[in-house]
Amino acid sequence: MADLCILDRLAETIEARKSAHSSNSYVAKLLSSGQDKILKKIAEEAAETIMASKDGNTKHLVYEIADLWFHCLVLLAHHELKPEDVLHELERREGISGIKEKLSRKTGQ
């Protein structure tokens, strides 16, 4: 079984690449290009994920979701956030009906 700590290790690598020169690091180049470039990559990867799913190619789907998750980690780093911030939110929602959780956001409860 895969180790969830990979998210932390990737986040640490992304954090370290913030100080790298953009000609030597894709992450540094992406971060230095700003939020709009990161968001564009996430949209691109999300579209590729959708297409892989529609094609029914599970191997390709896993590959595209890995790309999507990676770029989401870059976005978290851009905002000085870590994977654990998202994991805490998922943990908070655990056991709560999705319908009920969504309603709580509208009512501010």
Rank of each mutant, 00 (worst) to 15 (best):
residue 77 A to H: 08
residue 23 S to V: 06
residue 6 I to D: 13
residue 38 I to D: 03
residue 47 A to R: 10
residue 99 I to D: 15
residue 46 A to S: 14
residue 44 E to C: 03
residue 20 A to F: 06
residue 99 I to H: 15
residue 18 K to Y: 03
residue 37 K to Q: 11
residue 24 N to R: 15
residue 72 C to F: 06
residue 62 V to F: 05
residue 80 E to G: 06
residue 34 G to N: 07
residue 29 K to V: 00
residue 92 R to M: 07
residue 53 S to I: 03
residue 88 H to E: 15
residue 41 K to R: 14
residue 72 C to Y: 10
residue 97 S to Q: 05
residue 55 D to K: 12
residue 6 I to G: 11
residue 53 S to E: 10
residue 68 L to N: 05
residue 14 I to D: 01
residue 82 K to F: 11
residue 34 G to V: 01
residue 2 A to P: 07
residue 83 P to V: 00
residue 35 Q to I: 01
residue 107 T to G: 11
residue 77 A to L: 02
residue 28 A to N: 06
residue 1 M to L: 09
residue 75 L to T: 03
residue 99 I to Q: 15
residue 54 K to A: 01
residue 21 H to V: 00
residue 13 T to R: 15
residue 72 C to A: 12
residue 101 E to R: 15
residue 99 I to P: 06
residue 3 D to C: 03
residue 94 E to H: 13
residue 93 R to S: 07
residue 7 L to F: 09
residue 11 A to V: 03
residue 86 V to A: 14
residue 24 N to Q: 15
residue 37 K to N: 08
residue 29 K to E: 11
residue 54 K to M: 04
residue 25 S to Y: 03
residue 63 Y to P: 02
residue 48 E to H: 00
residue 97 S to A: 04
residue 38 I to V: 08
residue 85 D to Q: 09
residue 60 H to K: 15
residue 76 L to N: 10
residue 5 C to I: 08
residue 70 F to S: 11
residue 46 A to D: 07
residue 5 C to N: 14
residue 55 D to Q: 08
residue 95 G to D: 04
residue 2 A to F: 07
residue 106 K to G: 05
residue 94 E to W: 14
residue 53 S to K: 13
residue 73 L to Q: 14
